[in-house]
Structures are given as structure tokens and as C-alpha cells.
């Protein structure tokens, strides 16, 4: 199967003031890939993801989307973002809209879809995440797991090519983690291209076909889940993983 590179990150660096958060990051994502980024807190995982969605402007380097560098693309950020969905740790659902509106507004205002079409697609994905009963609810009336499932439906209803997850289960109560992970699992099964920043090691190992381990702003090691989890080449990776094993 000949897979195409959707995203290529080239020599990406990001500094906040004098603080160097990302250094010379290099990796690619192919169609249908599920890439998980793991690493301890403060290693730059989330910043990397936010750079990929241009919520942070990289200090240097390139992000190639279908071979085109999107950083130098003037004023193209909104259009690019409509192809690259993002799911946040803190959900970030629009508090002033119902669940259904949350999933429709982007389609109507950004993609220019008609109301009926937008509603149909929103319902399709809300069904998929098991939230179609709650379309009239406002975000404040939902539990964390429900909010995150709606957030996934909102991102999916834009029909993105890549979906980014920024620690989607970190803000959830333990009993709600499962429902979100199972939604992500089924997206992965459908062939969705995903980049997932997560602390759920078992999930990362199960779902992904590529794992990136970050430490102190650089990619320390990357490879297939089996390689990385069972036979880590670097001592840092092994140390990091052993902290999860001991639990």
C-alpha cells in the first residue's frame, strides 16, 4: 500500500523568550497513521501539537502539509486548521451553543455548508460518539466524558484529514476515560489519521502504529509500539516507561 505523507515536520523549533521548548523536531505522518506522542510533563508534547495546529507559531522550521509549508502561508492558518481538527484537554466546547450547534457552526460558517447538510453530518458524528440524545444540552450540563465526546464529534464534523488530540483524557475522572478512549479507538479503526498526545501508555501501545517519545524538547526515540515499549534503545525511554510499569 502506497501511503502519502500528509504532514512532515522539519527541524521545528519553538522558544518562549529564552526558554527553548522544542528543538529540531523531525517526523512525518502518513495517511491512516495513528501517531502517539508520549513523554513526561514539560517535555514539549503539547507545544508540538499546538505548533502543528498553528496555535503556537514555531520559531523556526517547516510544517509541510501535502508538501506545502503552512508556516509561510500568509493568512492561510484558518483554512489549514479547517483540515486539521483538534481535540483539547479542556474540551473547549462553545459554552453559548447547544451540542448540536457546536457541531454545526464550523461547517456552516467555515465550510459554507447548508443548514440541513450540516445538521445531518453533525448528527452522524454525534451518533458515532453516542451523544445524539444530548443535542439540546448546553456544554455546562454535560459530564467531562460527554463533553469530550462532543468535542470529538465537533472536530470530526469538519471532516478533517488529520485529527490532533492534546491529552484528551487528562482532565477526566477515571471512570470517564474509557468512553473517550473507545470513541478514539473506533476512529482509528475507521482509518482516521490521528496524532495523539497521551499519558495512557496501554492505550498508546494498543492504538498507534507509530510512537514518538519526547524528552526535554527533542524527540528522544521513535518507532513502532512494540519496538519502543518492549525494546527501548535509549536509557531515558526505558526509565520513563518503567515509571508506568511499577504502578
Amino acid at each position: 500500500m502506497n501511503k502519502q505523507n500528509i504532514l512532515q515536520i522539519r527541524h521545528l523549533s519553538k522558544t518562549f523568550g529564552k526558554n527553548e521548548v522544542l528543538r529540531d523536531i523531525d517526523f512525518s505522518v502518513k495517511t491512516g497513521d495513528v501517531t502517539t506522542i508520549i513523554g513526561s510533563s514539560g517535555s514539549g508534547k503539547s507545544t508540538l501539537l499546538r505548533c502543528i495546529n498553528l496555535l503556537e507559531t514555531p520559531t523556526s522550521g517547516e510544517i509541510l502539509y501535502h508538501g506545502e509549508n503552512i508556516i509561510s502561508l500568509k493568512g492561510g492558518a484558518p483554512k489549514y486548521r479547517s483540515h486539521v481538527g483538534m481535540v483539547f484537554q479542556s474540551f473547549n466546547l462553545f459554552n453559548n451553543m447547544s451540542v448540536l450547534k457546536n457541531c454545526m457552526v464550523g461547517q456552516i460558517k467555515v465550510l459554507g455548508a447548508g443548514r440541513d447538510e450540516a445538521q445531518q453530518r453533525a448528527m452522524e458524528y454525534l451518533n458515532k460518539v453516542g451523544m445524539s440524545q444530548y443535542i439540546h444540552a448546553k456544554p455546562r450540563q454535560l459530564s467531562g466524558g460527554q463533553k469530550q465526546r462532543v468535542a470529538i464529534a465537533r472536530a470530526m464534523s469538519m471532516q478533517p484529514e488529520v485529527l490532533l488530540f492534546d491529552e484528551p483524557t487528562s482532565a477526566l475522572d477515571p471512570e470517564m476515560v474509557g468512553e473517550v478512549l473507545s470513541v478514539m479507538r473506533s476512529l482509528a479503526k475507521d482509518g482516521m489519521t490521528m496524532i495523539v498526545v497521551t499519558h495512557e501508555m496501554d492505550f498508546a501501545r494498543e492504538i498507534s502504529n507509530h510512537v514518538v517519545f519526547m524528552s526535554n524538547g527533542v524527540i528522544c526515540e521513535e518507532g513502532s509500539p512494540d519496538e519502543l515499549f518492549l525494546h527501548p534503545k535509549k536509557q531515558e525511554t526505558a526509565d520513563f516507561l518503567s515509571r508506568f510499569r511499577s504502578e
Binding site: P78, Y80, S82, G85, N92, L93, N95, V105, K109, R154
Partner: peptide, 21 residues
Amino acid sequence: VGQTEGAKSIGMNHFQTMLYV
């Protein structure tokens, strides 16, 4: 700020983000 980021992440520009969210 999450509201703004949510709006940007689905491709809204500044004006749309302000007006709808």
C-alpha cells in the same frame, strides 16, 4: 482562552471567532 482556541481549531478567523463564540 480555550473558547478562542476551540473556534480557531475548526478554522474560524478572528472576526468569526469574535462574532459567533
